[in-house]
Design a protein around this nucleic acid. Structure first.
Lengths: 340, 340
DNA sequence: TAACGTTGCCGAAACGTTTCGGTAAATAGC
DNA sequence: GCTATTTACCGAAACGTTTCGGCAACGTTA
């Protein structure tokens, strides 16, 4: 394999100058640069990344620690995410590495080891918690990272997110403004930041309109059709008021809600209205649920490009203002809501 | 960050001896080893992989170049594969990196770049072709790799595979031995080694029994339910003899076959018998197809452990005999075959 | 006691880059 | 014509490991 030394010998230049020429530094004459580049090409020279990494102290690799083995139904999303990040980073000249620890937990030890052995330059963090230990840990070690989402405090780190509070608010307001007074929400795992933000939006919309905020109308859990089904049945079988409108935090939950309503002989939207947030994953579509589901939508698939870009820019020293973004979402009416 | 030098100063030992102690070399006294290990732990020392890589010339990273963006229905399998390899390698002290090139093709250029820049020590190669250019390329550069499958020639490389010829043979023989004379097979993409081997087994079983081997009874394509459906319809709508037994190369194809038969008013197994190979993927189960499908089975999920182990051993210099294995498969009768 | 193998240790070189500090020669300023 | 600046280059150090060759001290053997 050709090294810089070979090249320098061959050209009658110092190793220093050859290195600087190839890296396009200012104090190399244009003529020499051309000469060096030609020689590099003809000698089939490719820089040894291992040596470069040692001296720069950077591995050139960014990582994602995937917390759990995803549910089979999440696998398409997972794959899209991994593939998207992988490609995006390779386009940006970095490598992306996935780490899947065996056991559950926040895996701070995994981060610690990766950081200490200097094998990872920066991290992508998915679905952050309200107070996320990973964020605190990486911040304390001043290791670069980018969040898919935000924690609850003012973000002093790079992130890409959608306005989940607005999502919760918009869906609630949509139902309320059409006369619904008893509105339930079936949300994701408690503690996850996006879940709490959607709850916040939901509560704020209720509060502003003087509508009741009932504890038994707030459900949370792993976002599956089963959750939607079970929680809907629970709400309709317990004593007290029944919801006339239900908000689902994703389409799988919505699917479960609709199954439950059908099973109980309730029609959508005549008896109960249903709205949901749609991540635009290919496993379920809002059109195909019932006779079309009214949703807020924001494609999850649009997130990896900014995430990769932001982490990359951060590693290149970009200021915080350039690596924070709240992406758009929109409301699409499809007729799963009746006016009361 | 603690370095070897810090450690050696702290212990009053030479850097050499500290390094050798941590790497468990023979010429370090047991007492010193313990002392060094304790100090390393208490000083929170973790070897700088970048330096180690430079001096050993090895990146410690193995790679998989995933050829295409998998079909959504393949994503669970893909994820299992990636997760399995990732974990397995991390257990073995290596890191696993996925590369997903944008465009289709052999991606020999991708392999070339990864090899030349010394960023990957070895590769896992999935679904090899009968004559696989990647195998030839890596062999010519003497880069270690392991095959999930085999090419058609005598394998002089590490691999894990199942006996696909036997799979084709067993399924065919099972039908033939129950009186079927017109047996069709719907297989995977032509050129893939496992596909051709199953065809070979199918043909051999027919030949040995003096049964006709009709070109129109051999179908191949992307292994989806659509393929099974379309090819079944084609076989029954064209002139000439109709199959009384159909072999599906996986359960998705089988599902399509059964849909087609149902649509045409044919019953399984009374009118047409169906058997399949079952990879034990969680999206379809042999039990739930029709009233239970007779299959050969070999869990794909059992493959990544040997694959990782073999590549790892190869990198550590293990002889070929220890890194080649043909895994088991079994035949499970479930009553989708009628005796004629 | 002399020769010899074993044990436990060390200094220095090597891996192939990048970069710091310095230095001649060429150019510019006045 | 003299000083100041710019241009183009170089030697050497640094990054943190692993490993090669050597070397004392010690016990064993004859």
């Amino acid at each position: 394999m050709t090294t810089l030394k070979d090249l320098s010998r061959h050209l009658g230049l110092s190793v220093t100058q050859v290195s600087r020429a190839l890296n396009d530094h200012a104090d190399v004459s244009e003529k020499t640069k051309v000469r060096v580049r030609d020689a590099a090409k003809s000698l089939n020279y490719e820089a040894n990344v291992l040596a470069r990494r040692l001296v720069t102290g950077r591995s050139g690799i960014v990582g994602l620690v995937y917390p759990t083995m995803p549910d089979p139904s999440d696998s398409w999303y997972f794959m899209q995410f991994v593939a998207g990040l992988s490609k995006e980073f390779s386009r940006l000249g970095r490598q992306f590495m996935l780490h899947m620890p065996d056991d559950a937990g926040d895996h701070l030890d995994v981060y610690d080891r990766l950081v200490r052995s200097r094998s990872i330059d920066g991290f992508i963090i998915m679905t952050p918690m309200v107070a996320d230990p990973r964020v605190n840990f990486l911040r304390s070690r001043s290791v670069p990272f980018v969040l898919h989402g935000q924690t609850m405090d003012e973000p002093d780190y790079p992130f890409f997110d959608i306005d989940n509070m607005a999502v919760g608010y918009d869906l609630t307001a949509y139902l309320a403004d059409r006369g619904h007074r008893e509105i339930a929400i079936i949300n994701g795992n408690p503690g996850a930041s996006f879940v709490e933000r959607r709850f916040d939006g939901y509560r704020q919309a209720l509060r502003e309109r003087g509508l009741p905020n009932r504890a038994q109308f707030e459900a949370a859990g792993m976002m599956t059709a089963d959750l939607g089904l079970l929680e809907t049945v629970r709400m309709f079988q317990s004593d007290g008021p029944k919801p006339t409108g239900i908000i689902a935090s994703n389409l799988r939950i919505a699917k479960g809600i609709i199954s439950a309503l059908n099973a109980m002989g309730l029609r959508v939207p005549q008896d109960v209205s249903v709205v949901a947030h749609d991540d635009k994953l290919p496993d379920v579509s809002a059109e195909s649920l019932g006779s079309g589901l009214t949703t807020t939508e924001a494609p999850l698939g649009d997130s990896w490009e900014p995430l990769a870009r932001f982490l990359n820019a951060t590693l290149d020293g970009a200021p915080l203002s350039e690596v924070q973004e709240v992406g758009p979402h929109s409301l699409v009416e499809r007729g799963s809501v009746a006016v009361r």
